[in-house]
């Protein structure tokens, strides 16, 4: 089986879907001739023509608004926002329009669009190239939110997202594009080719939205993670020797509550980790869910490890990033409670 980077897997998912379905169109800033600043759409314009893959003016509201109009017509637009940090001009189109179109028109119209965007830090991108705005989407009724953590999942989930009849926000942790990253920034980058989840089947396959994956079975505590934090959690488990069960949520909405509950009922302890700021972050939703459904099984308070409630800094990037040491300390705290 070929191994792929996350970028190649995402490109491949586009390719598969554009070949299968003429209604799939791809556009965004720099995605046409150049193939995107991260090269996730490289070669698609050359292969499918300018009618199906093209550069957009720098106007995120226009990109999402136009995608909604095309979707209403019957197309399946998959658009790129160059960085998640630049989605704010599109927020009105996402929240007031894409998310509610089906409901407000009593199923007369719908917006089956996929909106991809690179998220997260770890690349010295500072406050406008590092944000993780997932909670701004999960808080909106009518949007599905997906965060893949490896090439195999990225391809299968992106294909599923494009096939979904509702709007899907597809968040790509950019620090994972070229290799798994566990927060040890002082170590050389490990390429995807060394990781089993870089083995990506050729052609079509899809992974259902709303199904988490147990990335590391364990008995001592449950870690709820997604994106880059999956690898940080693996490192923390290895370094503390604590037998953590690591769940990669993969989809935040719909959330795979059954997998979470089964794990926490087994381990009786829960640590939640994300890179986004803490207050009203998705971790708060996870914590509330676990508390509501597993309260009588818990032996320790639920702990959240997150980015601080500050803008993502440049020089202080590693003081901000919730790395394996901070997560490992949380593991110990939860075990000692």
């Amino acid at each position: 089986m070929p191994t792929m980077t996350m970028i190649e897997a995402i490109r491949d998912a586009h390719d598969v879907m554009m070949a299968r379905d003429d209604n799939v169109v791809v556009f965004g800033e720099d995605v046409g001739y150049f193939g995107g600043v991260f090269r996730c759409t490289r070669g698609l314009q050359q292969k499918y023509g300018r009618n199906r893959c093209f550069d957009a003016p720098i106007n995120e509201s226009g990109i999402v608004g136009a995608a909604i109009g095309m979707a209403a017509y019957g197309l399946r637009p998959c658009v790129e926002i160059q960085f998640a940090d630049y989605m704010y001009p599109a927020y009105d189109q996402l929240v007031s329009e894409a998310a509610r179109l089906r409901h407000r028109s009593a199923n007369d119209f719908a917006a089956p669009i996929t909106v991809r965007m690179p998220t997260g830090g770890g690349i010295f991108g500072a406050q406008t190239h590092s944000q993780s705005p997932e909670a701004l989407f999960t808080h909106v009724s009518g949007l599905k939110t997906v965060v893949p953590s490896n090439p195999y999942d990225a391809k299968g989930l992106l294909i599923a997202a494009i096939e979904t009849d509702d709007p899907v926000i597809f968040l790509e942790p950019k620090r994972l594009y070229n290799g798994p990253f566990d927060g040890h920034h002082e170590r050389p980058v490990v390429p995807w080719s060394k990781h089993p989840l870089s083995e990506v089947p050729e052609g079509y396959y899809s992974l259902p939205l709303g199904v988490a994956s147990v990335r590391r079975p364990g008995t001592a505590l449950t870690v709820l993670a997604y994106g880059t934090m999956v690898y940080v959690a693996e490192a923390a488990a290895a370094e503390t020797g604590i037998d953590a069960e690591i769940i990669d949520l993969r989809t935040l909405l719909p959330l795979d509550v059954d997998t979470i509950v089964a794990s926490v009922e087994k381990t009786r302890r829960c640590v939640i980790v994300h890179e986004a700021t803490r207050t009203s972050g998705f971790g708060a939703e996870l914590s509330a869910t676990v508390q509501e459904l597993c309260f009588y099984h818990l032996e320790a308070p639920i702990v959240r490890v997150t980015g601080w409630d500050t803008p993502y800094p440049h020089a202080q990037e590693w003081a901000y990033f919730p790395g394996p040491q901070r997560l490992g300390e949380a593991f110990r705290r939860v075990m000692e409670a």
Partner: peptide, 10 residues
């Protein structure tokens, strides 16, 4: 130019 996008797009 706007990165790889020529001025005609805007």
């Amino acid at each position: 130019w706007a990165i790889s996008t020529f001025q005609g797009i805007a």
